[in-house]
């Protein structure tokens, strides 16, 4: 082991640098996965009684588990789709007023919000006695709180999606606007124009494809980030279905110890999904292009 390390690193600085990296960024993940795996196979833990697949069998036959995976994807993909569409519209249609004055400043404000505050806000604004319900009440559209549609802790995750969109949409808008400049898009669309492309054709064939292609790695990473979010679904979600991160912690902290292996199994499946997405992303050309820059 020592010998291979010596050939891997050229000098002391390199050994220290890469050693620290392995220690802080690689080792914990490996150890964490290992622990969860051993726990899920009944090899360690407070209730362990030897190697068994029974925890896996129980977890995988649990409807809640599968529902949670689906729900996680549903929330993440819906958020990303809404955010991309609205951010494209904003960055292409109102880019000029969005680059100066108060409007220019305001687009950065949501970046100053931690997820827990966004969740709190969404709850304050969207609940049945929240700010929007009061607006409806004052205008006489509803006469009591129950008439206001459920927007938080609702079955469709409207509150969760809205909260995530509040954070993602301005970020994407700013990102798309910076890509627009970086990638020389206004000149490229002029070229397309002299070649005969109408404004719609420029948007459809040049502007939007270039932005989305360049943004693809970032958009994918952001999707992963939403999939793993915790505070927002914790505060704005309901008991079932739950996003995977919330489900893991709930099963981990339940009084009965019997659900702990299932918690680790859910965590492992989540990690496996993320690793697969990342692996596919790294294989794509757009990402290595990003890395080489």
């Amino acid at each position: 082991m020592k010998i291979s390390e010596l050939t891997l690193f050229n000098n002391k600085a390199e050994t220290a640098g890469i050693g620290l990296f392995l220690l802080l960024a690689v080792l914990p993940l490996v150890l964490g996965v290992l622990y969860a795996l051993l726990y899920s196979l009944g090899l360690i833990g407070l209730i362990s009684d030897g190697f068994t697949f029974s925890h896996w069998q129980r977890a995988l036959s649990d409807q809640e588990f599968w529902l949670s995976i689906l729900y996680t994807f549903y929330i993440a993909l819906t958020t990303i789709a809404i955010s991309i569409t609205s951010a494209l519209a904003a960055s292409l249609y109102i880019n000029k007023p969005l680059q100066k004055g108060i409007a220019g400043f305001s687009a950065y404000i949501p970046l100053a919000f931690p997820a827990i505050v966004v969740a709190f806000l969404a709850f304050q604004l969207g609940s049945q006695s929240g700010f929007f319900a009061r607006l409806f009440f004052q205008f006489g559209i509803i006469t009591d709180t129950a008439a206001f549609p459920e927007m938080v802790n609702d079955p469709f995750g409207i509150g969760i999606i809205a909260a995530h969109t509040f954070m993602a949409m301005p970020f994407f808008t700013l990102y798309f606007m910076s890509l627009y400049d970086q990638e020389n898009i206004s000149e490229l669309s002029q070229v397309a124009q002299t070649l005969g492309a109408s404004r719609t054709a420029q948007l459809r064939r040049i502007i939007v494809p270039i932005i989305l292609k360049r943004a693809f790695p970032t958009l994918t990473l952001y999707t992963i980030f939403v999939m793993g979010s915790y505070e927002i679904p914790l505060i704005l979600g309901r008991q079932t279905p739950q996003m995977m991160s919330v489900l893991v912690i709930r099963k981990l902290r339940r009084f009965s110890l019997s659900t702990i292996p299932e918690a680790y199994i859910t965590a492992l499946v989540f990690i496996a999904i993320i690793l697969t997405i990342l692996y596919l992303l790294f294989k794509s050309r757009t990402f290595s292009y990003d890395l080489d820059r």
Binding site: F21, L31, A36, S229
Partner: peptide, 25 residues
């Protein structure tokens, strides 16, 4: 390239799930 790719894993992984599997240590 390998190092850069590896550095993305802990960073994008859900912190709460990362914490859950590391809690024991």
């Amino acid at each position: 390239k390998l190092w850069m790719r590896l550095s993305y894993f802990p960073f994008v992984l859900s912190p709460v799930i990362y914490a859950a599997v590391l809690y024991y240590y």
